[in-house]
Every structure is written in structure tokens, then in C-alpha cells.
Simulated assay, not measured.
Amino acid sequence: MPEGATQPRRTDNTLVKALARAFRWKRMLESGEFASISELAEREGIAFTYMARLMRLSLLAPEIVDAIMEGRQPEIVTLANMMDPFPLDWKEQRIRFLQPGTSDI
């Protein structure tokens, strides 16, 4: 891209929806509405393993969550990639999910 040009936003609606679900489920568990992920998964009609993997999204660094919500996430940040285990340390997440030369997050 030419110097000074801004990258167009590319909101990944699937990833945004997954983040919203993860944080919603986290709130439901933290509030005591459900005693376990198993109980919540059964109520939502979702496989426990899928829910547990999706809920990991609630552990992302705030800068990465903001970037996803604003459509500024690097191409490597897709729902498929985020379903794999990732580091819990926010610094390590930034290193892993930022593409070389990207300083947008």
C-alpha cells in the first residue's frame, strides 16, 4: 500500500459473533446462572468441546479483541485459527497474532 494509505476495514462477522457468544457464556457462568460449562452447553444445545474451545476467545488480550471488533485484525486472526490453543499470556498472544510489519493492534 502507498505510504499514508489506510487499510480498509474487514470485519469478520463470524469471528465477532463467536467473541460475543464467548463473553456472553462467560458472564452466564460467572453470574452463577449455570454451575458448569457442561450444564450451559446442554442448555444451549452445543457440544461441550466446541463451547469450551470457543470460550477461550474470552481470554484474548483486549487489544486483539478491539482489533477484531473494529475489523483491524491481521489475516491470521480467523475463527479457525483461534479455535486452536493459544497462549494465555497477552504479550505472547500479541507476538503470535501480529504479522511481521503490522503495528495496528
Results as ranks from 00 to 15, higher is better:
Ile46Glu: 12
Leu54Gly: 00
Phe23Asp: 13
Val65Ala: 01
Ala52Glu: 14
Leu29Met: 10
Pro74Asn: 10
Glu39Pro: 08
Ser38Trp: 09
Leu79Arg: 01
Arg72Cys: 04
Glu30Gly: 02
Ala22Ile: 04
Leu29Ile: 09
Pro8Val: 05
Phe34Thr: 03
Pro2Lys: 11
Ala80Asn: 11
Pro74Trp: 02
Leu57Met: 07
Gly32Met: 01
Thr11Trp: 04
Arg94Ala: 04
Leu98Val: 01
Leu98Thr: 15
Thr6His: 10
Met1Lys: 06
Glu75Cys: 00
Asn81Gln: 12
Met28Asp: 15
Gln73Thr: 05
Glu44Phe: 07
Gly4Asn: 12
Met1Ser: 12
Ser58Leu: 04
Leu29Ala: 05
Gly4Val: 07
Met55Asn: 05
Ile46Val: 15
Leu19Arg: 01
Phe97His: 02
Phe48Pro: 04
Leu59Val: 03
Ile64Thr: 02
Val16Asp: 01
Glu42Ala: 10
Leu57Ile: 03
Ile64Phe: 01
Ala67Asp: 09
Pro100Thr: 06
Ala18Asp: 10
Met51Arg: 05
Ala35Trp: 10
Asp12Ser: 03
Glu39Tyr: 04
Thr11His: 08
Phe86His: 05
Asn13Val: 07
Asp84Leu: 12
Gly101Asn: 09
Gln99Trp: 04
Arg72Ile: 03
Phe86Asn: 03
Ile64Asp: 01
Ala22Thr: 04
Ser103Leu: 11
Glu63Leu: 10
Glu75Thr: 09
Thr102Glu: 14
Arg56Ser: 02
Thr11Pro: 05
Arg94Phe: 07
Lys26Asp: 15
Gly71Met: 03
Glu63Arg: 06
Arg96Leu: 15
Ile76Ser: 12
Ile105Asn: 01
Val16Ala: 00
Thr78Cys: 06
Ile37Leu: 08
Leu88Arg: 14
Pro8Ile: 02
Leu19Asp: 07
Asp84Arg: 11
Ala5Thr: 09
Lys17Cys: 01
Leu19Glu: 07
Arg96Cys: 02
Glu42Asn: 09
Glu44Gln: 12
Phe23Trp: 12
Ile76Cys: 11
Ala80Val: 12
Asp89His: 03
Glu3Thr: 11
Gly45Met: 07
Arg72Glu: 15
Met28Asn: 06
Phe23Gln: 14
Gln7Glu: 15
Asn13Asp: 14
Glu3Phe: 11
Gly32Ala: 00
Pro85Trp: 08
Arg96Asn: 01
Ile64Met: 04
Pro2Asn: 08
Pro85Glu: 10
Asp66Glu: 15
Gly45Tyr: 11
Glu42His: 11
Asp89Val: 02
Arg27Lys: 13
Arg53Phe: 01
Ala35Gln: 15
Leu40Thr: 04
Met51Gly: 08
Thr49Ala: 11
Ile95Met: 08
Glu70Ala: 14
Thr102Phe: 13
Val65Gln: 07
Gly71Asp: 12
Leu60Val: 05
Thr6Pro: 00
Arg21Ser: 09
Thr6Met: 12
Gln99Ala: 12
Gln7Asp: 11
Gln93Val: 03
Trp25Ser: 05
Phe86Trp: 08
